[in-house]
Design a protein around this nucleic acid. Structure first.
Lengths: 109, 109
DNA sequence: AAAATAGTTTCCATATATTGAAACTTTTTA
DNA sequence: TAAAAAGTTTCAATATATGGAAACTATTTT
């Protein structure tokens, strides 16, 4: 099993944001990772913990039972984008998505 | 504050397959965007175009009909993570996911 | 303009994601 | 250590994502 690797990093963009905002008061966390089903749940859990919420509280914010949150965090199954967005929106976390590709890497079979 | 920048090393295979440009100048495209259902399809389409594939060809790579690809690109519905990963994997594109949050922004209702 | 290719839509079946309720287990607190 | 709180699992219902087939429209090519 893979352990949760929580990588905190500060990007240039964040530095800019920080300077634009109130000096030194805005702490911004960014978690970035290769998208895999197995990691998503861990991310939900991480952010929820950071917000000091119980599964039940998060569930209330979204409008679902705590069991639902548990399932999501435990990666018991596939998830739809909509569900992911609902959760992170409730956690007031900004979700970004990026796609990287090397030019010319591709060959049609 | 440390930035962990891990630009992927280029493999020899990638260099070999590179058909234009000089050695060592493989361009890497990165599309980053706030995750929204409406945008995902556009991204699939963009990357597919960049790979010079038709919907039918992409479908073959994944093992689905072209109509399926059309539906995905046209954002006709919600999508699961699994499907997203399947598509971008076939396109040899690296999918990243990031979550940003401001500390202390959160208030429990 | 006709043919060929590419993309879209509809109809429909099947698989599975979402969800609640309740019982259960684990962790925390008094 | 007993009670309370937090988290997990199971059972079951419903909604909906995935997918193929075929007819359709749009675009490109000859």
């Amino acid at each position: 099993m893979e352990t949760t690797k929580k990588m905190k990093m500060m990007s240039l963009d964040q530095l800019k944001d920080k300077h634009l905002g109130e000096v030194g008061t805005i702490e911004r966390d960014k978690y970035e990772f290769d998208l895999k089903i197995e990691i998503l749940g861990d991310m939900i859990k991480s952010v929820r913990k950071e917000r000091h919420l119980t599964q039940e509280q998060l569930g209330e914010l979204i409008g679902v039972q705590k069991s639902q949150i548990s399932k999501l965090e435990r990666n018991t199954r596939n998830v739809t984008i909509e569900t992911i967005l609902k959760v992170f929106k409730a956690l007031k976390a900004n979700v970004k998505f990026s796609i990287e590709m090397n030019e010319g890497e591709f060959k049609v079979a």
